[in-house]
Design a protein around this nucleic acid. Sequence first.
DNA 1: CTGTATCCTCGAGGATACTG
DNA 2: CAGTATCCTCGAGGATACAG
Lengths: 127, 127
Amino acid sequence: MYSFGEYCIFDGKIKTHKLDLKYPICPIRNILSRFSDKWSLLILAVLYTGKTMRYGEIKKSLPDISQKILTSSLKNLEKYHLIKRKAYAEIPPRVEYSLTETGNSLIPSIQMLITWAENHFEEILRK
Amino acid sequence: MYSFGEYCIFDGKIKTHKLDLKYPICPIRNILSRFSDKWSLLILAVLYTGKTMRYGEIKKSLPDISQKILTSSLKNLEKYHLIKRKAYAEIPPRVEYSLTETGNSLIPSIQMLITWAENHFEEILRK
DNA sequence: CTGTATCCTCGAGGATACTG
DNA sequence: CAGTATCCTCGAGGATACAG
């Protein structure tokens, strides 16, 4: 297990997504914080169930996400190499998204989280 | 694996932390969203390394968290039964925090996430 | 030492209209 | 179909002062 004390002496760099050069690397702050927003995990999970999906299919799986946020979330996930984007030069346009190897390697962790959440649903929400 | 399509037909209830009664339960939206803020995972990880810690010790492990946010995060984690709070009637006051059984059961998932983040550090941040 | 009480900033997320 | 472009809301997070 890591020394969180050591890792966690950062000074507010989390927002800018910059790394602190003086200290070693806190995985939570520097990596996990990039995907711990409202939609990223859901998008990854949806992509996993569908293997490769078009923009509209993802949108349909997450009916209450706005176009803007879906687009920007996909860009963010692509930026960090968790998903890949393939655009076809057709009319009307077609764009397909799928998990990268890196993205796929995150799935077991997400599944473990989901399983935990399921198993502890009542405990968490009781009272 | 879950049908995320089915689970994810909620309509914007995530903010209020209310459950959607019409549909079954999406673990990500209804459970994980409660702890996917800036500090909760770090607090849980810190508490795990220290077993039971005083308020000031946690603060020292996370030097750049504000008092207000630490207090409210601890309250939130206590509300959902991930940590327990024990106050001693002394002067000056002493308050000790520790993981509950439920909180402890989340640790393996967090560790798995951290291990993943470590192993994919360069891939995620390259270029 | 462990908190409240205010006030404030800032950006994630959203609503809506438009485009190639 | 898969996006941009604007404008806006709202609340997480923070700074500071004070309290028991």
